[in-house]
C-alpha cells in the first residue's frame, strides 16, 4: 500500500505541475456551468437533474482525455521499464495511477456543488436526490477511468488510447438508448449492460446491490485487464 500511495501522490502532483489539471478542470466547469444555467431557466425547476445529464455527457470525452496518458506516456518515454524493475508489483502501479486520476475527477465534480448552492438559494432542491446523483456520477467515473487506463496500457500512442476508450465508453453509454430496436430478452440484457440504466436507478435514491455489483465488476474487470496487459510484456 505504501508504494501505491507514493505513486498516486506523484501522479496527482504531476497533473498540477503541468497545465493539464487546470485546463481540464476549467473547461469542464465552463461547459457544465454554461449548459446547466441555460437549461435551468428552460426547465424552471430547482433540481440538479439536468446538470447530471450534462456531466454524464461531458464525461464521455473528459475521462478518455484525462486517462489516455496514464500508461501510454510511460511507454513512450520508456519510464515503464524503470518502474517495472522497481520492487513494485503491476497492480500497485495500476491502482496508484487509477486513484490519482480518480481523485482529480472527484475534486472536479465536487466543484460543481456550487450549482446546488445557487439553486438552494432559489428554491428547495432535494438534498437526497442530489447526494444520490453524485454517488452515481462517482461510480460512472470509476468505470470510465478503468476503461481509460486499460486502453492507455495497450499502446504508446495517446490518440489511439483516447479513441479506443471513447468507443468502449460510448457503446456502454448508448446501450439503453437503442434498446427499443431489440426484442424483449435482448432488450433487457442490453439495458442491464448500459451505464445510464444503473445511474438512473441510483439517482432515484435506491442503492440497489445489483447496480453496485454492475459498476464494481466493470471496474474490476478493466483494472484486471490492465494488469494483465502490463504483465504481458514479459512474454512477448
Amino acid at each position: 500500500m505504501h508504494q501505491v500511495m507514493v505513486l498516486a501522490r506523484k501522479e496527482f502532483r504531476s497533473y498540477f505541475d503541468s497545465p493539464v489539471a487546470y485546463v481540464v478542470i476549467t473547461l469542464f466547469l465552463l461547459i457544465a456551468g454554461y449548459q446547466f444555467s441555460t437549461a435551468l431557466f428552460i426547465n424552471n425547476s430547482p433540481d440538479l437533474r439536468s446538470l447530471f445529464g450534462i456531466i454524464r455527457f461531458i464525461l464521455l470525452f473528459f475521462i478518455p482525455a484525462l486517462s489516455m496518458r496514464l500508461i501510454s506516456e510511460e511507454r513512450r518515454l520508456g519510464t515503464i521499464e524503470l518502474l517495472m524493475t522497481l520492487p513494485l508489483k503491476e497492480w500497485q502501479l495500476v491502482i496508484g495511477k487509477y486513484l490519482a486520476a480518480y481523485l482529480l475527477v472527484i475534486i472536479t465534480l465536487m466543484l460543481t456543488v456550487i450549482h446546488y448552492i445557487t439553486i438552494a438559494s432559489l428554491g428547495q432542491p432535494d438534498l437526497g436526490a442530489t447526494f444520490a446523483g453524485y454517488i452515481g456520477l462517482i461510480l460512472i467515473v470509476g468505470v470510465y477511468l478503468s476503461i481509460g487506463i486499460f486502453t492507455s496500457s495497450l499502446s504508446q500512442n495517446q490518440i489511439i488510447a483516447f479513441i479506443s476508450s471513447f468507443v468502449i465508453i460510448f457503446v456502454l453509454f448508448l446501450l439503453d438508448k437503442i434498446v427499443f430496436f431489440f426484442p424483449g430478452f435482448l432488450a433487457t440484457l442490453l439495458e442491464f449492460l448500459s451505464i445510464d440504466y444503473h445511474f438512473n436507478n441510483i439517482a432515484r435514491g435506491v442503492l440497489d446491490t445489483r447496480d453496485l455489483i454492475y459498476y464494481f465488476s466493470l471496474i474490476g474487470l478493466f483494472l484486471f485487464l490492465t494488469i494483465q496487459s502490463l504483465e504481458s510484456r514479459k512474454w512477448k
Binding site: S14, D17, L77, G78, T79, P87, L88
Partner: peptide
C-alpha cells in the same frame, strides 16, 4: 523477483525520465 529488484540499481538504455519533474 521483488527481492532481486531491491538489490539492483538499473539505468536502462537512453535513461528514461519524467521530463516534467
Amino acid at each position: 523477483s521483488l527481492e532481486v529488484r531491491k538489490k539492483i540499481g538499473y539505468l536502462p538504455e537512453n535513461a528514461p525520465l519524467y521530463h516534467d519533474m
